[in-house]
Design a binder for these strands. Structure first.
Lengths: 189, 189
DNA sequence: TAGTTCTATTGATTTGGATCAAGAAAATTT
DNA sequence: AAATTTTCTTGATCCAAATCAATAGAACTA
């Protein structure tokens, strides 16, 4: 059994029947560094589980790439807004490191929900978690100064600084790469 | 039939039976200016529909009140994060103008969903709309300069400038009241 | 209606972070 | 492993918005 299925089983008590059904519709794929999982304007028609590697979700806005999220192993990756509404995505999602992914298609997702209630419950929890995360992201950008965002990120997600190129991290914090570099020397990183 | 029920019927084709059930659990209440609908730390146990008036959702953060949303007639008001997780709210919600509200309790919401699928569908649409709005809010704070946020708000929601005290609007835009005042003279408002 | 508090404007000054510029270090490619 | 590209750092300058300060105007309230 792959790690993704194992996690779902452990967290939601999915039956082996449900896990089998899920396994059947999961396609293994890989992405090279800088390959796109989703591009702006395209409708998000699949969900990815990351087996290994890291990814970045960003807005391409006025010649700037503003990163809004990073993903690592055992994460679920998609544009919720585009996937749910089946409207063109406003974001891009690309591989930072080479990635091994398990991918499920939109149509399969809903036919699975129809058949297996505990998978529907899994999706509802994912959706709720994402909503809370999205509100927290907006709150952080509203309430915190750039320096506070930096120190919080450093404390809460130190691995981001180890595995993500710093100019991407700078754009996530909504500061220039130069300013991030200065924060880092100031905090002896 | 009140305006709220009328809207639900029109948008979701709810049956008269469903609307009756909804009507039964809706309690009319009023709020005076500055009264709280929800305070930080409290669990959000109800949903309000605004019949008349306006409300404000804000973070109370380091001696500053940072407004994150404004609501007018025919809006649905709650802290989604707190309501869904039944965890203490991180936000406050208060009346700006005196409000007439229709309020539904948490427990009634879920018993209604259980009985009436089209109301569940109504809730799912609300949730999806909120998620997209929350992502858009974060995107705006990440991508746009203060001045661009101001011009977009002016264009997309001009009534906010007519009915909401400007220092609240300033905090929503994440700028000082002085800067908002200067933007306004610059744009001849 | 006079007094008080709240809200908004305008001016002077300060400041945190952006931008510009150059070079160093690291990673990738050939 | 040499060449090229990408990433990161450091310094100098600039600028948009914050802060500080004073006043005016509106809206409560006693």
């Amino acid at each position: 059994m792959n790690q993704v299925l194992f996690n779902i089983q452990r967290a939601f008590g999915a039956s082996s029947q449900e896990l089998d059904a899920l396994d059947k519709v999961m396609e293994k794929t890989t992405l090279e560094k800088n390959d796109f999982f989703l591009t702006e304007g395209e409708v998000c028609k699949s969900i990815a589980f990351i087996e290994s590697g890291s990814m970045r979700l960003y807005y391409d806005y006025q010649a700037k790439e503003n990163s809004n999220d990073f993903f690592f192993e055992n994460s679920v990756v998609l544009s919720f807004a585009s996937f749910l509404s089946q409207q063109p995505s406003k974001v891009n999602i690309t591989a930072i490191e080479p990635c091994k992914l398990l991918v499920i298609q939109y149509t399969d997702v809903f036919s699975l929900f129809y058949q297996y209630p505990s998978l529907k419950r899994f999706a509802e929890v994912l959706l709720q978690e994402h909503l809370i995360k999205s509100e927290a992201r907006a709150a952080s950008l509203l309430n915190d100064t750039p320096l506070v965002r930096f120190t919080k990120l450093l404390e809460e997600h130190p691995r981001i600084f180890k595995r993500i190129p710093l100019h991407y991290v700078a754009s996530y914090l909504s500061i220039s790469p130069e300013t991030l570099s200065r924060y880092r020397t100031k905090f002896l990183i």
